[in-house]
Computed example of a mutant assay.
Amino acid sequence: MTFESAQEIAVEALLQLTRDPEQIGRFLAVSGLGPESIREAAEEPGFLAGVLEFYMADEAMLLTYCENAGLRPTMIAAARFALVGDPSDYG
């Protein structure tokens, strides 16, 4: 998967979150962001990977998103990897 394809998947996932007040509220709470700072945060490296990690942490939400987006769940993990690589590389 290319970096650009991964970005597209992550941006679409973020847009999906913004359409659901409960889910975006959870995302903001988990990330520590306020609604006013989401645009600025979206420009930071790793932010879009964090969006995908948020989905990956909730299987029901992940599966629902993937079904609606026409993606296999493994594509979310592949996109996350394409954006930032393997987490074990940082440990």
Rank of each mutant, 00 (worst) to 15 (best):
A41M: 09
A42W: 06
A13S: 07
P35C: 08
R39W: 03
G85T: 09
E40V: 11
F47N: 02
M56R: 15
R72C: 07
V84L: 10
R26P: 02
A10S: 10
D89M: 12
E67D: 13
T74D: 15
L33Y: 05
L28T: 12
V84Y: 02
A79W: 04
F54M: 03
L63D: 14
E8Q: 03
I9E: 03
T2Q: 08
A49P: 07
M56K: 14
A42P: 01
L17R: 01
M56L: 15
R26E: 12
F54W: 05
Q16T: 07
Q16N: 10
L33G: 03
G32I: 05
Q7R: 10
C66G: 09
Q16A: 13
A41G: 07
A13Q: 01
M1W: 04
A10P: 02
A79C: 10
L33N: 03
M75S: 15
A42E: 06
L48H: 12
G50N: 01
S88F: 12
A69W: 04
R72L: 14
P21I: 11
T2Y: 02
L62A: 12
D86G: 05
A29Y: 03
G32E: 00
Q7G: 03
E44V: 09
Q23H: 08
T2W: 03
P21A: 10
V84D: 02
F3D: 06
G85L: 11
M1A: 08
A6P: 04
E43V: 10
E59S: 14
T18F: 01
A6L: 09
S31C: 00
L33V: 04
I24N: 03
D20F: 03
R26H: 11
V11T: 09
A29V: 09
C66H: 07
E12G: 04
E22R: 12
Y65Q: 06
R39S: 10
M61S: 15
E40G: 06
A57H: 11
D58P: 07
A82I: 07
G34C: 05
D58A: 15
R80E: 14
A77Y: 10
V11K: 07
D86F: 09
Q23E: 13
E4C: 02
G70Y: 06
A60W: 09
E59Y: 11
V51R: 00
M56D: 15
A13V: 05
P87F: 11
Y90H: 10
D58Y: 13
Q16P: 00
F27T: 00
V30E: 05
V51P: 00
T74S: 14
S88C: 08
